[in-house]
Nucleic acid binder design. Structure first.
Lengths: 211, 211
DNA sequence: AGGTAAACGGACAAGGGTTGTCCGCTTGGT
DNA sequence: ACCAAGCGGACAACCCTTGTCCGTTTACCT
């Protein structure tokens, strides 16, 4: 929320020193919040009109304060990526490496499962502002995984680079073969994957670690 | 290939008894093959022009024999779903339930990983012709999983409905946090997941099995 | 209360993508 | 050599997108 406040402030910043009208600020707040929800529900492909509609304002109002649709989307995504970064920081300070890793994994998978926009942002090639965050995130993954492996809690026949893929996998929801995933499917998936990560390997992993 | 032949034959079938010209048949073959590759590489969102371009023919040629883009896509998808059904049949006849399950899982995940169109077809709400195949496929999953569980090879705290989600998860490829998956990432994912499926559970799974 | 500038909403233009058609030209088969 | 079947791709029609513009409304200040 504090994040969201500063985001709104940045958008409201005006070249002239004039203080903006109260309804203007309220509408920008609504737009940012609507964008956040829409990105989660619809994904990064959401349209400006759709966000305006959800915010209960016209498109004109959208474009008065927001430089472009892409700018708003990047704002929202960067905000969430920074949250993920904080989660990783906290997990890295856990006394128990395995417990810290599991805690982070759960938060990460949950965020991915609940916001398809974040999954897309993490998955696809993306804007300049995000690339920097992704690099930090990779560092976090490396740190958490290697610590858990060093503590003997995680199998060592896989590379830290495998773990982002496995956690992305755990977040796979939607539906398959006509079955619709419940809200907790990601937790069930994650449990199985964590069990697979902990136990002794059943032979050499095929292929090489991703670069 | 024999599948593909009959598919082409169906498309070439003409109201009048006239035998079609050789170039016409060749072009339809090329179109079906191009559609298959395009569905794998691009997904079910591929356009008619794109398929024609890949086949090296004009759009006019596309629409002469093919009733609609959707019809062609469904044709291609049904073909692959039927292949998957055959794989499941074969796996169900394996003497060793766990080995049979693993063999099917590997083929299934591989197909999903290598054809994003199939993943989409399995994942999304879909056309009438596919729904029937999905139902058969669910039956196959249930059979394979319950057999492996009855043999004591697979943990029993999860439902057969969880397994399609886990295998869909294993097929997750593309890229995450800026890392691009190699050709064998799905094999590495699957290995970890299979290890997680086999071993004794680490407590009750959260939530309920998907309906 | 009333004046005024800021803000609003949504019709609109412009652009890009889609499916599917049509017709002048080419080519395979007899 | 003939000619119908087949070909290619320009084209129409449609949909959805982003972003602009302007007549109307509204918050704020005196």
């Amino acid at each position: 929320m504090s994040q969201s406040r500063s985001t709104v402030d940045r958008l409201m910043a005006d070249a002239s020193g004039r203080r903006p009208r109260a309804d203007a600020r309220r509408n920008v707040e609504r737009l940012v919040e609507a964008a956040r929800i829409a990105v989660a529900e619809v994904g990064v492909g959401v349209s400006a009109h759709e966000i305006a509609r959800r915010a209960g304002v016209g498109v004109g109002t959208f474009y008065r304060r927001i430089p472009s649709l892409d700018a708003l989307l990047e704002l929202v995504l960067v905000e969430i990526l920074d949250e993920i970064g904080e989660l990783a920081d906290r997990a890295a300070q856990d006394r128990d490496p395995w417990h810290g890793f599991c805690a982070f994994a759960a938060s990460y998978v949950r965020l991915r499962a609940e916001s398809c926009g974040i999954s897309e942002a993490l998955g696809g090639a993306c804007a300049t502002g995000l690339a920097e965050r992704l690099e930090r995130l990779r560092e976090h993954f490396r740190c958490l995984v290697e610590r858990a492996q060093a503590a003997g809690a995680m199998r060592t026949d896989l590379a830290w680079q495998d773990v982002p893929f496995l956690l992305a996998a755990a977040a796979t929801g939607g539906s398959t073969v006509g079955l619709r995933a419940g809200d907790q499917q990601w937790e069930r998936n994650l449990r199985v994957i964590l069990d697979g990560l902990r136990h002794a390997p059943s032979g050499q992993l095929p292929g090489a670690a991703p670069a």
